[in-house]
Amino acid sequence: MTEFFGKRWHDMGGDPAGKISYDQHDFALWEKRVDALMVLASTAGLMNTDSLRRVLEDMGEEAYEAMSYYERWIASVGQNMIEVGAFSTAELARKMAQVKARGSTYGDAT
């Protein structure tokens, strides 16, 4: 393990890396909604681009490797909303349990 000197994982310029993959996926409706929520919550003054990024960075490299782009984004938006007091952790917990109970697919639950 190399010694940590302050360069954080997301700060990737110059890091060794392999070939660029050109795989492309179409954005699903739920991903577009995540994007819209970030824009609208920012417009409403509840968060900003820097607070979005700050949470993404603090989630760490493992999250970058294991989660998809909009999975990380909704995790950050949710965290930002709790921080700013838009809703409480308990309210989010209750709502997520309700949503989950609606069905087994996104179409059923949304």
């Binding site: 302050g6 360069k7 954080r8 820097d50 960075e57």
Partner: peptide, 10 residues
Amino acid sequence: WPPGHIRTPA
């Protein structure tokens, strides 16, 4: 090399 959110690349 402080911690936190910084926009100056390493």
